[in-house]
């Protein structure tokens, strides 16, 4: 096993990790602000993938425009889900929201099947994004570089927004104590909506990447990234954005290195490995790597 091979696997892991991280951020933000485990979050990845397919492959729009549109579509879908499904349940027990999110997830999958059919569709980026770049022993497509850069830019922008702006301060305050946030004059409905919009926009972009990575998309594709990003968020410490980013990259790297470095006979067990990683980390760090404790709000 050459060092070049290992370097290649690490690059592949970082590409996969970028996607997990982007989805995990939204998962974590939404849990952080309203303690909702949103299982419909993965479906936004699916919607992002189909939006990309439609705009980029069928309509042939330029890539930056498509990326922008996918961000907006993700944000809008997130806002609609929050308004339609979760706001009416505000204040209900946690498990009610969880079940509602499963309901939304199943509904979106079935709407997808109804309007788009369950038949997988080929998904490929135009040639200019498929060019192979060779750096030393490592090769990747130009789209991979674009994916990783977009992920880093968006994460940086998000961290800036959350820690350096008034809206971000309101989001962090609301996450900590909704009642006191209201006493400060914060409109919590708008703050929660903004959180869904941001988290869902990132999930939408992850959908664009997902399609390009696996070459085929179907209306059920959201399940796996949804679940794995949940794992990534828990590994990093649910509610923490840097935790979600870290968890995403750890999971992506672990998964790729496991498949790449062990004999091929074990590669079918990659998901078993993902969940073993989760159990192992939680045994050592019950709150995740950067988690601050999951104590209930009083």
């Amino acid at each position: 096993m050459s060092s070049g091979y290992i370097a290649q696997q690490i690059v592949n892991g970082l590409i996969l990790g970028s996607m997990y991280a982007l989805v995990a951020i939204g998962f974590s933000m939404i849990y952080g602000i309203i303690r909702l485990i949103n299982f419909a979050h993965g479906e936004i990845v699916m919607i992002g993938a189909f939006t990309t397919l439609g705009l980029l492959q069928y309509l042939g729009l330029p890539f930056p425009l498509v990326a922008l549109a996918v961000l907006i579509v993700g944000a809008v879908v997130g806002i609609l889900i929050e308004k339609g499904a979760f706001r009416p349940m505000r204040g209900a027990p946690q498990v009610t929201g969880f079940i509602a999110s499963l309901g939304v997830s199943i509904m979106l999958q079935n709407l997808g099947i109804l309007f788009l059919t369950a038949q997988p569709r080929n998904f490929s980026f135009p040639d200019y994004l498929q060019r192979v770049i060779q750096v030393g022993p490592v090769s990747f497509r130009s789209i991979d570089a674009v994916i990783m850069s977009i992920a880093l830019i968006l994460m940086g922008a998000l961290l800036f927004l959350v820690h350096r702006t008034k809206l971000g301060m309101a989001m962090r305050a609301t996450a900590e104590n909704i009642d006191v946030a209201r006493l400060m004059g914060i409109n919590i409905n708008r703050t929660i909506m903004a959180t869904f919009a941001m988290g869902s926009a990132l999930a939408g972009i992850a959908g664009l990447m997902w399609g390009g990575k696996f070459g085929q998309i179907d209306p059920l594709l959201g399940f796996v990234p949804g679940l794995k990003s949940f794992v990534a968020a828990v590994i990093g410490g649910v509610g923490s954005i840097p935790g979600a980013i870290l968890g995403g990259y750890i999971l992506g790297l672990a998964e790729v290195l496991f498949v790449g470095l062990l004999p091929p006979i074990y590669s079918a067990f990659r998901d078993a490995f993902v969940f073993s990683t989760l159990i192992l980390i939680l045994l050592i760090l019950p709150n995740g790597i950067l988690g601050k404790g999951m104590e209930e709000r009083v």
Binding site: R172, E176, V180, L183, I186
Partner: peptide, 21 residues
């Protein structure tokens, strides 16, 4: 509020600034 309701993860300055939200 009762129990003070300080935002424990926000800095002291941010806690004050949020009062002027």
């Amino acid at each position: 509020p009762e129990g003070r309701g300080i935002f424990s993860q926000l800095t002291v300055r941010e806690n004050l600034m949020i009062g002027a939200y």
